[in-house]
Simulated scan of single mutants.
Amino acid sequence: MKKRLIALRGKSGVGKSTSIHILYRLLLEGPGAKTLSFEKYGRLLDFRAIVELHGFKIGIVNRGDVADKLNDYISMLAAESCQVIVCAARTKGDVTGVLASYSRRFVLTELAKTESDDKIAPVSDLAAAHQLAAHVYGSLFD
């Protein structure tokens, strides 16, 4: 299995953190899935977790606004031997460089999260979470 880094990219406020929170809940619905660690940060939805799924460690972090912090979180998850890491990542700033710095150890997949109006935002967040889940499961068996 190739190690993967899956980044949900988008501007501030488009629902990246919400989508990754939904992804976490979706992964836990899988048979035999369990949380190995969970750490909540500041705001309501901000967290870092490791989920075991079919014997693989999946690292998840949804704080991707500040490059230095994102680098720390990815580094922590990599040190925990996560084979797949999913993160939120802003489209501006030095975050792109942080993601690129892991290209020797991980295959990078970037998915775009765009704005939607208030009426379809929950559907958009759920769709993004399902897209992320498809990439996670696909990564496990490549």
Rank of each mutant, 00 (worst) to 15 (best):
G55D: 09
D125L: 03
D125F: 05
G15I: 04
L23C: 00
F47A: 06
L126G: 06
L5R: 00
I58R: 03
L8S: 02
T91R: 09
P122K: 07
A133P: 01
D65K: 11
S75I: 11
A134L: 11
P122E: 07
G64R: 06
A79F: 12
I20E: 02
K57C: 04
L28T: 06
Y137M: 08
G15W: 03
F47G: 00
D142W: 03
G55H: 04
G32A: 09
I50S: 02
V123L: 15
H130C: 11
G30N: 15
Y24M: 10
L132V: 07
M1H: 12
R105E: 12
T35C: 13
F141L: 12
R43S: 15
A112D: 13
V86Q: 06
S19L: 00
D125M: 13
Y73N: 04
D72S: 14
L44S: 12
V136S: 02
Q83W: 10
R105A: 10
R90E: 08
F56L: 09
L70E: 11
V107D: 13
A133H: 04
L140K: 02
F141H: 08
G42Y: 06
K113M: 10
S81D: 15
I6Y: 05
A100P: 01
E29R: 13
D68Q: 14
K57S: 05
N62A: 00
Y73T: 02
I85D: 12
P31T: 10
S12Y: 14
V14W: 06
I58T: 05
R4K: 11
A112R: 05
R25T: 10
L8Q: 07
I50L: 04
R48G: 11
R4F: 13
E52H: 07
D94A: 12
K40P: 02
F47V: 02
A7G: 04
V66R: 13
V14F: 05
D118L: 15
L45M: 03
M76S: 15
R9D: 01
A129M: 02
Y73F: 10
H54N: 15
A129S: 04
R104S: 12
Q83I: 07
R63E: 14
L140A: 05
G30H: 15
T18L: 03
I58V: 14
D118E: 15
L99F: 06
G55W: 07
R43K: 15
F106I: 06
H135N: 12
E39R: 14
D125K: 13
D72V: 12
C87R: 11
V14S: 04
A78Q: 09
D117N: 07
V123M: 14
G55E: 03
